[in-house]
Each structure stands twice: as C-alpha cells, then as structure tokens.
C-alpha cells in the first residue's frame, strides 16, 4: 500500500507563534485578537554601528516593546487608532487596529548593552553600536 508522505509546512507551524508573525490577513481563531503584521524594515551598516528603521504607523511610543534576548532582537507594537465613534465605515484598505511583530537575528558584533531607539512619525529607528573589538582598526606597519 502506497501512502503519501505527510508534508509539514514550517511557515504554518510558526504561524501561531508570537515571534514569527505573518503579514497575511489571516483570520484569527480568537475573534478578539488583532491581526498581526511584520513592520516594513530597512537595515543599514556603517563602520561604527547598525541602523534598523521599521515602519510602525499608528503606534504610540508607549506601545512599542523592544527586547534583545541573546542574539535575537524582537520588535512588538500595537496601534492606538483614533476613535471612530459616530463614524460609519465606507471603504477600508488597511487595518487601523493591529499589532506589529518581527524579530531579527543580531550579528555577534553588536554591543547589546548600548542599543537606543526613537519613534518619530510612525518610524522606529534603532541604533545598534558595534562592540569595540568589532570595529575596524588601522594597523601601523613599522620597519623591522
């Protein structure tokens, strides 16, 4: 008897994990749960530091949760949209009530104790300095 091998889709296995959210508008089993999206993010590097720039529209500063756990940076946030009392929905292209979740694996060169973050106009900017030993150093050549 031939049996079909069972294929486990790893992305499905992580779909319910709070640390590997998907950006798909997938209805939640719990109707009260907010849809979860991954923030659109750019990452930059200089000789001195890394910069992570993530879009978190509609998010208050107090609603951002940033955690560095070992070599992983987790970004979580919840929007605080304006009240829609007395308003009737006509057209919707995005969820104004939602959560953002995303994590990144950090390079070993990051100085995890001195990471800073700012939020302005819905854009979160993290500055991750490199550890001193990870920064490029010029080596003097002397005559032997």
């Amino acid at each position: 008897m031939h049996t079909q091998p069972m294929t486990v889709r790893r992305d499905d296995a992580f779909a319910t994990s709070a640390t590997s959210a998907t950006s798909a508008e997938r209805p939640s089993v719990d109707a009260a749960a907010l849809p979860v999206f991954e923030p659109v993010t750019n990452v930059y590097e200089t000789a001195e530091r890394f910069h992570v720039v993530a879009e978190l529209p509609g998010v208050d500063q107090d609603a951002v949760d940033l955690v560095i756990d070992r070599n992983r940076l987790a970004i979580k946030a919840t929007t605080a949209p304006a009240t829609t009392d007395g308003l009737r929905g006509l057209h919707r292209e995005y969820h104004d009530r939602k959560r953002f979740e995303r994590w990144f694996v950090l390079p070993d060169s990051v100085d995890r104790a001195h990471v800073t973050a700012t939020l302005k106009d819905g854009v979160l900017t993290l500055v991750l300095p490199k550890a001193e030993q990870a920064k490029p150093r010029r080596i003097e050549v002397t005559t032997g």
Binding site: T84, G86, L87, R88, G89, L90, H91, R92, E93, Y94, D96
Partner: peptide, 8 residues
C-alpha cells in the same frame, strides 16, 4: 492605503 468613514 486609505480608509474612509462617513458621518452625518
């Protein structure tokens, strides 16, 4: 992306 609401 845009959302639109109406009111009275």
């Amino acid at each position: 992306p845009i959302n639109v609401w109406s009111r009275d």
